[in-house]
Design a protein around this nucleic acid. Structure first.
Length: 622
RNA sequence: GCCUCGGUGGCUCAGCCCGGUAGAGCGGCAGCCUCGUAAGCUGUUGGCCGCGGGUUCAAAUCCCGCCCGAGGCUCCA
């Protein structure tokens, strides 16, 4: 049944002539009704009395909102192309009328089977016009069945959870003693039961704003972030680090398009296997989608490449700026989960399982090292290793070797059957201040997509074969790394330690505060020398008290603060306020530059992304 | 997508219940202060009270819808 429901100031109608043989008897007189909800109603095949009642119940619920108690049932065939037979339709319409009267509605009905002339005035409010479709119970059942089929498919996903220990033992998660492994316990709880403890907003959201790193962009879609100069510095340094590591690893960096044609045969099939929500783009007569990963681009590229076992494992890498996923509203939060994010994505094409496992282990170590260099040490993340039961039975030793490399217990998830396109994966997860987990690095062994994309290599015998594909994000989304670093700093603060970013990522590494404008020149000289040593240095030349400027520098988490006055002109010893040490250290300039150089050794460097003088900087937030 | 809470100068927030001249602190700007390690003083600027509609003589305040944010579901290759 279809109903067009209109909240009207008035309706007037006049039956003109009978249209069908079974039309009701009616006077050819004009009728007028005021302050009424008109229900243009089309009865469809399969509708029954239950549908009639349900329709009235729905309408009645709505009438309460509108504070109206008067309806006109107006038979109107033109709403459906699947009409019930007239005699049946009339029966149902009468049933609606009877039921509406029974539940206390002031009910009117226009005659059935007539060609009528009518005038209607509809109210302007947003609820005035509504359309509804009411299905018979069997149709509802069919809908439910579809859902339950999806649930059936989920059955395959049924997981058993364990803790894998470095000594190779695998303990059911409920039997494991988490003493001293509270972080792992939080992660395991989050993964297995999805229990959330949090009431507050995630701390990194306030921090990303206050430190002028990033912010929401109201002019875009949710989950599309605006990056301020300091934040962009952090982000690009992280990107540079990951890029360098991947090149070092031997991956070839490429770039692929961000939008793809829905009609492409390989893609259409793949999308069905990947139920993420996409951004859809209509352009001329094409329908395109924005990529949610770098897979397609790289697969299409490798599909067209010629290679043999001699070039394998073949490693291709891309830093996707951006990957797009139209996550549901409630899931998009701060920098933890975005709709547009920067994801390093590396695929390795391997000849067989042995080669894949060997490469897998190399990448596992590499990812640990990358997180460490980013500033997330072992205690900051927890590992999950996931595999199908079959894979585990055949590869116990291999899985044990991963945990051994990890050096501490890992959560393990065993699927009853393979449900995804991979037979095994692992992920490193950051557990934040709300006890929520977010995946950073991850790697998977994919056994389906080579075939789907018809990617082949030539083996020793000259035959074409499909490789195994490993999908790895070495660091996870770059934005998510920033989130993890901020949440980590907040955790430190909760423990009473000063919150900090790693030195190589601190937008300002050294802040110079001249006691007064008399010492500007000296401050400038010091800044020049630091700058020459690739230290990001700035000068607070604002006319505030020194105390206030020290406070501001601390609030910016600046690792080294140097106040410059008369004494510093007379001596070359500087009072360096060391954030990490929590005290003022007397140091010569050279000692400071050496220390900084030592700490940031091997890390990418970028110059100060804002003017050196604070008085020349705009304020982006606060 | 669903449920709950919120949106008021650039920022943080009060006012809303009980409709009647829009408030504070911070910031910005101007002036004074020229300072030894976490907030110096005075003045001043700045508001489609998220957007649209409704009720009312009158709406930041009441009602409806939408948008955005947070929390919880759900989701999460």
């Amino acid at each position: 049944m279809r109903i067009l429901q209109l909240h009207s100031n008035f309706i007037q109608y006049k039956p003109i002539q009978k249209e069908i043989a079974i039309a009701e008897e009616a006077e050819k007189e004009q009728k007028r009704l005021e302050e009424i909800v008109v229900l243009f109603t089309a009865v469809e095949e399969g509708d029954n009395e239950a549908v009639a009642q349900k329709a009235i119940d729905e309408v009645q619920a709505f009438l309460e909102k509108l504070k109206v108690n008067r309806i006109l049932i107006y038979p109107y065939a033109h709403l459906s192309s699947n009409l019930a037979r007239p005699e049946n339709a009339l029966k149902i319409v009468k049933a609606m009328e009877a039921y509406a009267k029974k539940i206390g509605l002031e009910t009117y009905r226009a005659p059935f089977g007539w060609n009528k002339q009518f005038t209607i005035s509809i109210k302007g409010h947003p609820l005035a016009e509504q359309s509804r479709t009411i299905l018979p119970a069997e149709a509802e059942e069919k809908k439910k069945e579809k859902v339950s089929e999806a649930v059936k498919a989920q059955e395959k996903l049924k997981s058993t959870w364990y803790i894998l220990q470095p000594d190779g033992k695998m303990v059911p998660v409920e039997e494991f003693d988490f003493k001293g492994r509270e972080n792992l316990q939080k992660f395991a709880t989050y993964e297995t039961s999805k229990v959330r403890a949090s009431q507050q907003a995630p701390p990194h959201v306030l921090l990303m704003k206050r430190l002028e790193i990033a912010d929401y962009e109201p002019g875009s879609d949710p989950g599309n972030i605006r990056w301020y100069p300091k934040g962009l510095l952090i982000k690009s340094l992280l990107e540079q680090l990951v890029n360098a590591k991947m090149t070092e690893y031997g991956a070839m960096e490429v770039e692929t398009p961000i939008m793809y044609d829905f009609q492409h045969p390989s893609l259409a099939d793949y999308i069905n296997r990947f139920p993420a929500r996409q951004y859809i783009l209509k352009s001329e007569n094409k329908t395109l989608f924005l990529r949610f990963a770098a897979c397609f681009g790289q697969f299409l590229m490798v599909h067209d490449a010629q290679f043999s076992y001699k070039q394998m494992p073949l490693k291709v890498y891309e830093l996707t700026r951006y990957s797009f996923r139209r996550e549901q509203r409630g899931e998009v939060v701060g920098l933890r989960r975005l709709r547009a994010f920067t994801m390093p994505d590396c695929h390795a094409f391997c000849t067989d399982r042995e080669q894949a496992k060997k490469e897998f282990l190399i990448r596992f170590k590499l990812c640990m090292q990358i997180l460490e260099e980013i500033g997330l040490s072992k205690g900051d993340y927890e590992a999950a290793i996931r595999f199908s039961k079959d894979f585990y039975e055949e590869n116990k030793e291999f899985i044990k070797s991963l945990v051994k490399v990890l050096g501490r217990p890992a959560l393990s998830e065993m699927w009853r059957e393979r449900f995804f396109y991979f037979i095994m994966k692992w992920d490193f997860n950051f557990v934040d201040n709300q006890d929520k987990a977010a995946a950073l690095s991850t790697d998977q062994i994919d056994v389906e997509n080579a075939k789907r994309y018809n990617i082949t290599y030539v083996d020793e015998k000259g035959e074409k074969r499909h490789p195994l594909i490993m999908h790895c994000s070495p660091s996870g989304a770059i934005e998510r790394c920033v989130y993890a670093l901020l949440e980590k700093a907040y955790k430190e603060q909760q423990k009473g330690k000063p919150p900090m970013l790693p030195l190589w990522l601190s937008p300002t590494q050294v802040r110079i505060i001249p006691m007064s404008d008399k010492y500007f020149e000296h401050a400038e000289k010091l800044a020049d020398s630091l700058d020459a040593q690739n230290v990001r240095v700035d000068i607070d030349d604002q006319t505030f008290t020194m105390q206030k400027r020290v406070r501001e520098a601390e609030r910016e988490w600046i690792p080294y603060i140097i106040v410059v006055g008369q004494k510093e002109i007379e001596s070359d010893v500087l009072p360096v306020r060391d954030r990490k040490a929590g005290k003022i250290r007397k140091m010569k300039l050279e000692e400071l530059t050496n220390e900084i150089e030592e700490i940031v050794k091997g890390k990418p460097f970028k110059r100060l992304p804002v003017p050196r003088h604070l008085s020349k900087r705009p304020q982006f937030y606060g």
